[in-house]
Amino acid sequence: MVQAWIYNASDPASPRAPHKYTPNRAVPLSTLDSLGVQQWTREQTTSSPDFVDKIRSQRGYVNTDTVCLSREKLPDYDATLQKFFTVHMHEDEEIRYLLEGSGYFDVQAPRKEGEEDEEWIRIALTAGEMIILPAGMYHRFTLDENNFLRCMRLFKEDPKWTPLNRAPELEDNQYRRAYVETYLKPSSSVQAA
């Protein structure tokens, strides 16, 4: 099952470390749901594509590809992981189905009323789990300390991956505005379990 917690930004460890508070500040899946993050877990089987085919059909995904993130397979490994960890958004959904390995998506939590510091929710994913981040949501990605992940990416059109790095002018982007209007409310706060 997908796990999530408040990211401890004061932890000086590598971004690939868990960055948990002590005690951990777990985030219930209902909070992810309220932010538009959808997730599924499926027991890994070697020959049953029905799980992915069902999601593809329901959501209109017509193309897929598979990527492997490891020091051996990814050119410019460290620079590429740094690029993935730069806060960005997309103008379409980001959907990933993990086939092997593990990693973290961090999503921006709603600001608590009266507070200016932003919090991040770290979402840990392992093989057999699928996640969809909505268009317009600020997020970042990194591998965990295992430094390996193989995943399927799904697309509604031709495969593309166009990150828009966070910048003040993105607040006027129609996809960002739609995300904020739909999911972020001024009085929202992150619920820890």
Rank of each mutant, 00 (worst) to 15 (best):
I95H: 00
R122S: 15
R56L: 13
D144P: 03
K156C: 04
L143P: 01
T45E: 12
E116D: 13
A135Q: 09
F51A: 12
L125F: 12
L133V: 01
Q44F: 10
R122G: 08
T31N: 01
W161V: 05
D53T: 02
L74W: 02
V67D: 04
S102D: 07
L149T: 07
W161E: 08
F84C: 12
Q44K: 15
P163F: 10
P110Y: 14
K54E: 12
S70T: 08
I55A: 09
L149F: 07
R122D: 07
A109W: 15
F51Q: 10
I121E: 07
S48R: 14
G36D: 01
R140E: 03
Y77M: 06
D50S: 09
R111H: 14
I121F: 11
D92F: 01
C68I: 07
T80P: 03
R140G: 03
P49G: 05
R42Y: 11
E157H: 14
A135W: 05
E72H: 03
E129C: 12
V87R: 08
E129Y: 02
T142Q: 03
S57W: 01
M137Y: 00
Q82I: 06
T45A: 08
E157I: 00
K112I: 07
T31D: 09
G60V: 01
P163N: 07
Y97E: 05
T126R: 13
T86M: 08
R122C: 07
W161I: 03
I132W: 00
E157G: 15
R42V: 06
L35N: 11
F148N: 12
S47E: 14
P163L: 13
T41S: 14
P75L: 04
R96N: 05
A109K: 14
T80R: 11
Y97V: 08
F141I: 02
A127M: 08
M89E: 02
N63Y: 12
P49W: 02
T126M: 04
L143N: 01
W161Q: 04
D65I: 02
M130N: 05
L125C: 14
W120R: 09
T86F: 10
R150P: 05
W161C: 07
Q82K: 15
D92C: 08
Q108K: 15
K156H: 12
P134K: 06
H90Q: 06
C151E: 09
A127W: 15
Q39K: 04
C68M: 07
I132M: 09
F148I: 12
D33I: 01
S47W: 15
N146K: 15
V52K: 10
G114Y: 02
L98R: 04
